[in-house]
Amino acid sequence: MPHDHHHDHDHRGLGPSSHPCRADQDAPLTEAQRLEIAVRELLVEKGVATAAEIAAQIARMDARTPALGAQVVARAWTDPAFKARLLADGSAACREMGIEVDALKLVAVENTEAEHNVVVCTLCSCYPRNLLGLPPDWYKSRAYRSRTVREPRRVLAEFGLTVPGTTTVRVHDSTADMRYLVVPRRPDAAAGWDEERLAGIVTRDCMIGVAVPSV
C-alpha cells in the first residue's frame, strides 16, 4: 500500500518498497569505532574473551529494559516496607526482587506532593542501565544535560510536564558512583491495582523524572 500514507519525502531514488533507500554507511570509521574494533579483536586474539562471550554480554545489556525498573516501582507502591528498604539501599532492594544490578549503586528518590525529582548527568551520560536499559538519545544530548541544571522547570514543560509552583523540583546530577531511580507518585486512579498492572503505567521517562504516570 505505497500511497495511503502521508509523504514528507519526494519520489526520487525510491527502493523496491517505494520508500527512499537508506543512505549507505560509507563514511570512514570514527576514532572511537576503530578503537573499539582494535580492542575487541585484541581481546579475542589474546584469549582474554571469546567472540561468543562478547556477543553474549552485548545481548545481556540489550535485554535490560525499563520493565525491570517498572517492577521495582510497582513493588514500592504496593509494599511500604519494601519502599523503605528501596529508599535506604536501592541496589539491595533490587537484588531482593531477583534483579541483578551488578555493581550498580542505586539511589531511589521518591516524588511526593511537595517534591518532584529529575535525573541528569551533566558530565557524561551516567544512567542506571542495569535497571532501565540503554539511555534515550536525548538524555545524552548537551541540551538536556546543560539545561536541566539551569532551568529544570522549562525543560520539564517541554516534555509536557508542568510542575506546580508549590512543588519543589529536585535535580539529581549523577556525577560519580551513584545511579538514580525516580519513584513516581502512584496515580489515585490506580487504587486497588495489582503490581503487574501498576508496572504497566511506569514508563522509562517517569523513572528519569521527565514524566509522571497517567492512567
Binding site: 529544570p152 529536585r170 535535580v171 539529581h172 546530577d173 549523577s174
Partner: peptide, 8 residues
C-alpha cells in the same frame, strides 16, 4: 524558585 540540585 526553591528548586535544588544534588550532586555527588
Amino acid at each position: 524558585d526553591g528548586d535544588t540540585i544534588d550532586a555527588e
